[in-house]
Amino acid sequence: MTYKVEKSDDEWRAELSDEEYRVLRQAGTEPAFTGEYTDTKTEGVYHCRACGAELFRSDTKFESHCGWPSFFDPADSDAVETRPDDSLPGRPRTEVLCRTCGSHLGHVFAGEGYGTPTDLRYCINSIAIRLDPTD
């Protein structure tokens, strides 16, 4: 897929910390309950840490107690894209990527009974996003 923001591997490595690169560009996962946004209640807009695109808003964030920030809907229908992820044998998942730069954000799960308006849980790595608080 072609993205609005495309950079070489060397450019991404120069711009991102080692841990950001591992998660955003190599589809890694930060350890549960360690991310800076897991429990935050601050109002604002969450942007892709790699390219700055708007991804999620705080009014769609909810407590799922899964260890990562959870949202029930992206900021816009074109903010993220999804694709099948079969990297864990016997546990098919759906990967969530930034539609602007293709960075890995986390995974989305459906039908878990959280009672959200969409019945979805976008489980997103804190290190993949940056919160711009509302003043």
Results as ranks from 00 to 15, higher is better:
M1L: 14
Y3V: 05
Y3D: 11
K4H: 14
V5L: 15
V5H: 12
K7I: 15
K7W: 15
S8P: 06
S8W: 12
D9Q: 08
E11F: 05
E11S: 04
W12V: 01
W12H: 05
W12A: 00
R13D: 09
R13C: 02
R13N: 03
A14M: 01
E15W: 12
E15R: 05
E15G: 09
E15C: 05
E15M: 10
L16T: 04
L16D: 00
S17V: 11
Q26Y: 11
Q26D: 07
A27H: 08
A27P: 01
A27Y: 07
A27V: 09
G28A: 10
T29I: 06
T29S: 03
T29K: 03
E30R: 07
F33S: 03
G35H: 09
Y37L: 02
D39I: 11
E43L: 12
Y46R: 02
C48I: 00
C48S: 04
C48K: 01
A50F: 06
C51L: 08
C51D: 14
A53L: 04
A53N: 11
E54R: 14
L55E: 09
F56Q: 12
R57H: 15
R57E: 15
R57D: 15
S58A: 09
K61T: 14
F62H: 08
F62A: 08
E63D: 15
S64R: 06
G67R: 02
G67T: 05
W68S: 02
W68K: 03
W68A: 04
W68V: 02
S70H: 14
D73W: 12
D73T: 14
D73E: 13
P74W: 02
A75R: 06
A75L: 07
A75Q: 08
D76S: 13
S77E: 15
S77D: 15
D78H: 10
A79L: 07
V80Y: 12
E81N: 15
E81T: 15
R83I: 04
R83V: 07
P84H: 11
D85R: 01
D86A: 13
D86R: 09
D86N: 11
S87P: 14
L88G: 06
P89I: 10
G90Y: 03
R91M: 13
R93K: 08
R93Y: 08
R93C: 10
R93G: 00
E95M: 00
V96M: 04
L97C: 08
L97Y: 11
C98H: 06
R99Q: 08
R99I: 07
R99K: 15
T100V: 10
C101R: 09
C101H: 09
G106H: 03
H107C: 04
H107P: 00
V108A: 00
F109M: 02
A110Q: 13
G111W: 12
G111C: 10
G115Y: 02
P117H: 02
P117E: 12
P117R: 05
D119S: 07
D119L: 02
R121G: 11
R121V: 12
Y122I: 07
Y122W: 02
C123E: 11
I124M: 02
I124K: 05
I124E: 06
I124V: 10
S126E: 04
S126W: 11
S126P: 01
I127F: 04
I127A: 08
I127H: 07
R130P: 15
R130W: 04
D132I: 13
P133A: 12
D135M: 13
